[in-house]
Design a protein around this nucleic acid. Structure first.
Lengths: 133, 133
DNA sequence: TTCCATGCAAACGGTTTGCAATTCT
DNA sequence: AGAATTGCAAACCGTTTGCATGGAA
């Protein structure tokens, strides 16, 4: 059933995501890993990131605008996104009241609400400090 | 200060979005309007959709995967998305408890939580009826 | 007559993929 | 040996843009 192999690319990508100062995108990871493995390709970075996500070692945060960001924090948590620079920061999970979900289920024709996607937005400290509106 | 002009393309695009059975994407609108205005271009559809959004006549729902969907419902509301077919349906807005937002603000370094992005997922009735897991 | 809107096609950004060569196991 | 993984480059998809033409005001 085709075991996944251990390669230096995979190790380097995982290490890069883990040491990233913020949730990095594929390009950042690529540039970072390139210093170690100069001829690694972007395609490989994407494939490895997908593999690591599938194995549950990292999480992919797909964004409506801009590239996917990768998150080495595998604990349950939510995200707050800077509306200026797009940076994403972790926040602890919150529990939505059950009656709220029940209201949504009733209002829709859907039999069950299986997913709740909750994300926050604001201005991150560094954007707030540097730019004025 | 450069008024926006009235064109048949604009009228046709707005009408198409309004009569769409589900929140349509640009391609659907393009195909629909093409029956009326055979030589309309996809680029124009995108430009008109953007203009209508800016004027507040429709809303654009950017999606992390898949194309933007356009929504003729300008009342405040939320969305539930079918995890199978990607269709989006409207649900009434819900109010998150203030103390929940306050908790998020405190947990993050952000000074203010300005946006709350809340979206639900499930299996839509027609997918539920046709496919079994 | 002005200048915004259109059609066309090329470019874009992020991501995926086909293929032959490589490298784990 | 054999299969998974890599590097490379081309393709992909949704969307945007530059430019010359057309049409609303």
């Amino acid at each position: 059933m085709a075991r996944s192999r251990q390669t230096k690319q995979k190790a380097a990508v995982l290490a890069a995501v883990r040491r990233a100062p913020h949730h990095p995108d594929a390009k950042w990871v690529y540039e970072e890993v390139s210093r170690e493995i100069p001829n690694i390709s972007l395609g490989t970075v994407y494939r490895v990131l997908a593999a690591l996500s599938a194995e549950g070692l990292i999480r992919e945060c797909r964004q409506a605008d801009g590239p996917s960001l990768y998150d080495a924090n595998t604990h349950e948590h939510l995200h707050i996104r800077c509306t200026r620079c797009g940076r994403i920061e972790d926040v602890p999970p919150v529990q939505l009241p059950d009656e709220l979900l029940e209201a949504v289920r009733k209002a829709s024709a859907f039999a069950k609400v299986e997913e709740v996607r909750l994300e926050f937005g604001g201005i991150c400290p560094s954007c707030a400090g540097i730019v004025q509106v």
